[in-house]
Every structure is written in C-alpha cells, then in structure tokens.
Design a protein around this nucleic acid. Structure first.
Lengths: 227, 227
DNA sequence: TTGACGAGTGTACGCCGTACACCTACGATC
DNA sequence: GATCGTAGGTGTACGGCGTACACTCGTCAA
C-alpha cells in the first residue's frame, strides 16, 4: 500500500502533539543523535517536509520535546517541610530524566527557558518562598541549585556506556584518582567513574545544599551586595 | 599565490598542535557551531582532508580542544588552607571558561575524560586529600562539585545573548519568578536571568559547598552505605 | 460552483563529515 | 646518484543533514 492509498483509506492526521510524542519515543529508543527530521518523518510515515507544517524547525521540535519531558515531573507534594517537598520533587525530576537520558543535553542546549521549564521553576520558587526563605535568598538558592533543580547533576563525563579496558598506567599517573576509585569499588566497578552509586552521590550533594540553605534561612541570611 | 606555489616557497607544515590552536581560535571568534572541518581547513589554507592526517576525526579534534582549554587552568597555589586552594583554582578555571564560552558544551559532550581533565581532577583530589579529607569524603565531594570543579555552574539556560522583549504576561503567569527577578534587578536587568551577578552566584554556591565539606570533615563524616 | 485554505508532496540546494585513491617531496639505504 | 618507503597534502565522491519553495489535493464555507 503506497502512501497515497493509505491517505485514501484511514490516516490519522498529523498534529504537533503526535509529532512531539513520536520524537520523544524515537529519541528514547535510538538516542538523540539518531533523531533527524528525515528519520522522524519516516517513523510517522510521512515525507520530511510534512513535519514543518507542525513545527517551525528542528530547534522548535527540540523545545517541544524538552517541554514534554519536563511536563512529566510530579507536581509538588503538599507538606509543611519545604526541604522534603523540594527534595521529593527534584528526585521525581531525576527519575524522569533517567527515563529520557537524552533530555539533559536537549534541555541544556535550549537558548532560553521553555514554557514548561519556566512553570516548573516558578513552582519551585514558590515552594522555597512558602518555606520561609526570603525572595533574596530564594534567588541565590535557585542559582546555586542550577540544573540540579531539574534532577541532573552534570557529571564531568558520561559514566554509562562501554568503558574500554582499564588503563594500567592510570594509577601511576593519577594516584589520587586511583585511590578514590579504590574506595568506590564497593561492588566491583573498576573504572574511574564506575562502581559509584549515582543515586547516593546525587542525594549527598542535594542534601548538603538543602541543609546549607536551611541554615542560611535560620540565620536570616541576606546578601550584602546591594550597591 | 596558489596553494601549490605557497608550498614551494615557504609553508609551515601542519601539525596537531597548529590544528588545535587554530580550532580553538576559530571557536573563540565564530562560535562552536561554525566550527566545521571544512571551515577550519580553509582557515589553515589547506584542503579539508589534510586535517585528517593530524586528527582522527572531528570528535578527536574536540577532545584536543577541550584538553587545550583545560590546560590553561592555573596550577594549584601552595598554602595550608585547602578551601582557599580549591577556591582559587576553581575561580581560575572559571576565568578560562569565560574566555572560551564554547568549551563548556565541548567538555560536556566528551564521552570520557580526556587526559588533561583527568590530570586536573587528580590534582584537585590531591588538594582535598592533603587538606585532611578522607578518601571516602573526597570521593563524594568531587561528585557533589560536578562540573563546578571546572568552573561552570550549569545554569538552566543561557542568560547571555539577546533576550527578546520582556513578556508582559510573564509576571502574571509566574509570580514567583517575577518576584525573584524584581529583587535581582539591582542594576536594571529586566529579564528572568538578566541583572544577576553571575560571579556572585557562582561564589555563593561554591562557598556554600566548600563550607559544607569542611563541616563534614571536622565531624569526621563517613559514608554509612557500606553494604 | 467556486475558491480559499490547510495538510502533505517532490525537488532541489548548500552544507556537513569523511572514505578512498592519488600525488609529491624528502630522507634513508644501497 | 638511483631507488624506494613514507608522511603529508590533494581531489573526488558519497550519503546524510536541515529546509526553501513550488506543487497538489481534499475539505468546507460562501
């Protein structure tokens, strides 16, 4: 059956939402690098240019994908303890990003905040404010969290993926790293980044920051940099 | 003078170093997106394929560029106060990355740590260890710092570049963000990210983390996650 | 009946990275 | 000095990319 015939019989018309969903699914299954307009069109059984009736260009497609992912993050739980609310939501965001590993790079590469990100940040700021942090402190706190707000910790390199054979000279050249790797090898990981419990590392830093924020709040911290 | 004639007269032969330096310069001046093998070859007055005698492919070129940039970071200062040593070096790294804004994305996109990054991390780990942090704590501390070790804070979106006209409905839709923007508008910035003192934000988070680490060290903190 | 319009099509252009075969100048070897 | 291996630069070509632009065609309002 050619595309023409399919048109005549039954054909769900394309729309922006179907395009975005297909794009997310394709990125999930084949990786973001394999996501091209042509490949996506093929997936939707449509000619590449058809996509451009629904998204202005590839950048806007990526914007939409980022928003779709951010939209998956749980709404904030209710509760009197702002640290718990923030913590829970950020860990939810982290789960979302673990489901869509490509999304980290896509979100980072947006030049401006997309609507869903903006809404998320606004909501998160509200949680801090409701928790008793001043607007001033909230502002700096959100900066300090950076991308951690969205659940990714920005490691220096990708620890997943196949790591080559361990470099025998590495320990000699980098004794400190070797030592750290040794302490981290609690379950057999042997490479630099391997054998780490990413979830533990993420929560370690998160809690350190949240506790630091709470301390500043209690002290009535205020930035002293006004002109 | 054609390329041929230039060859006959005087022609500095290409080598890996010249290629990398030219690539860094080109990225500095025209941005990383405009850096293509073809464009780089043109800059060196050479045919594109000539580059492949000196770098295996574009990825390896980017690896080399990342290493070149990381190599610009100051060596650690001497001193008894580990917090000051770490702080100073990270702020040096930050200056380097401000000189080469494209480097953040390039470093992030490497799939594994390049030699210079590895050396830098090893040296940094040594500073923590010399400061009295246990190998265990040092490990988690380095994870907690993440890319901040290299001087970038991973903001959620790029606050440089031209921001469009301020959205009049934004304040209504996102009251909390609007409030934060208002408190931050100490020198006339009007957009969400604008008007922030990036250096202040960076040091705020950095010091918060360093102080947190020092507290853990004093308490003799140890991870309780062993099996 | 017509005619505007929205959705999908087809073709084409100029980029990109790079495989592969080639040439050419040079330094070592006999 | 003739020979030859080799390193470095060249030229051509391929497949893929994003997307501009002109088109067709089915639907529906007037």
């Amino acid at each position: 059956m050619t595309r023409q015939e399919a048109t005549r019989t039954q054909r769900i018309p394309l729309n922006r939402d179907r395009v975005l969903r297909a794009a997310v699914a394709l990125a999930d299954s084949t990786g973001i690098d394999a996501l091209s307009m042509r490949r996506l069109a093929q997936e939707l059984d449509v000619v590449p240019m058809a996509l451009y009736k629904h998204v202005a260009n590839k950048e806007e497609l990526l914007d939409g994908m980022a928003d779709a992912v951010v939209g998956e993050i749980d709404p904030p739980a209710a509760g009197p303890d702002w640290q718990r609310v923030v913590r829970g939501r950020i860990l939810s965001a982290r789960q979302v990003l673990l489901r869509h590993p490509w999304a980290v790079r896509v979100i980072e590469s947006r030049t401006g905040p997309t609507p869903a990100v903006l809404a998320y940040l606004d909501s998160m700021a509200g949680t801090f404010r409701d928790g008793g942090l001043s607007a001033d402190l909230t502002h700096h706190v959100m900066h300090a969290m950076g991308s951690r707000l969205l659940g990714f910790s920005q490691e220096l390199f990708d620890t997943s993926g196949p790591s080559g054979p361990p470099d025998p000279g590495l320990a000699a050249r980098h004794p400190n790293i070797a030592e750290l790797a040794a302490t981290a090898a609690h379950d057999g990981g042997s490479t630099v980044g391997g054998g780490c419990d990413d979830q533990f590392e993420f929560e370690f830093a998160l809690d350190l920051l949240l506790d630091g924020f709470e301390n500043l709040r209690r002290q009535g911290w205020t930035s002293a940099r006004k002109a």
